[in-house]
Amino acid sequence: PAPHVFVNPEILESADQRSVYEEGCLSIPDYYAEVERPAAVRVKYLDRDGKLQEIEAEGLMATCLQHEIDHLNGVLFIDHISKLKRDMVVRKFKKLARDKAGNK
């Protein structure tokens, strides 16, 4: 299938029903966590030609859209997990950054 292009996407509606998928991200390498999000969303966006479009997505596509739109809003998937788990991940990456800086 051809790649999807979403310019300036915006979530218009989110379902009340929730779904859980294991998410990961290149921003936080080698860490994965189950994230609960709305099971379906309606998103408006501009296509590659600048034409306004809407898509109703459910399942994994809905999760992917929400994950990527979160990035545009400065939110990472770890912002959707418990504070305890998030704090553990942040500590781990801070330690890795310190260790890396010390080895230079």
Rank of each mutant, 00 (worst) to 15 (best):
residue 40 A to Y: 12
residue 40 A to I: 13
residue 45 Y to D: 03
residue 45 Y to T: 08
residue 46 L to A: 04
residue 47 D to E: 07
residue 47 D to R: 01
residue 49 D to W: 00
residue 51 K to G: 00
residue 52 L to K: 06
residue 53 Q to C: 09
residue 53 Q to F: 00
residue 53 Q to L: 01
residue 54 E to I: 06
residue 56 E to A: 03
residue 57 A to E: 02
residue 57 A to V: 08
residue 58 E to I: 05
residue 58 E to C: 07
residue 58 E to H: 09
residue 60 L to M: 07
residue 60 L to Q: 05
residue 61 M to E: 11
residue 62 A to H: 06
residue 62 A to S: 12
residue 63 T to M: 12
residue 64 C to D: 08
residue 64 C to V: 15
residue 65 L to F: 10
residue 66 Q to F: 11
residue 67 H to K: 04
residue 67 H to E: 08
residue 67 H to C: 05
residue 67 H to G: 10
residue 68 E to N: 06
residue 68 E to T: 05
residue 68 E to D: 03
residue 69 I to N: 03
residue 70 D to M: 05
residue 70 D to E: 04
residue 71 H to G: 06
residue 73 N to S: 12
residue 73 N to F: 07
residue 76 L to F: 13
residue 76 L to I: 14
residue 77 F to Q: 05
residue 77 F to Y: 14
residue 79 D to H: 09
residue 80 H to S: 06
residue 80 H to D: 06
residue 80 H to A: 09
residue 80 H to Y: 05
residue 81 I to W: 07
residue 83 K to R: 14
residue 84 L to P: 10
residue 85 K to E: 14
residue 85 K to G: 10
residue 86 R to W: 14
residue 86 R to F: 14
residue 87 D to S: 12
residue 88 M to E: 10
residue 88 M to T: 11
residue 88 M to A: 15
residue 89 V to R: 01
residue 89 V to F: 09
residue 89 V to G: 05
residue 91 R to T: 11
residue 91 R to Y: 08
residue 92 K to D: 10
residue 92 K to R: 11
residue 92 K to L: 12
residue 93 F to W: 14
residue 93 F to T: 00
residue 94 K to M: 15
residue 95 K to T: 14
residue 96 L to C: 10
residue 98 R to Y: 01
residue 98 R to S: 12
residue 98 R to E: 13
residue 99 D to F: 09
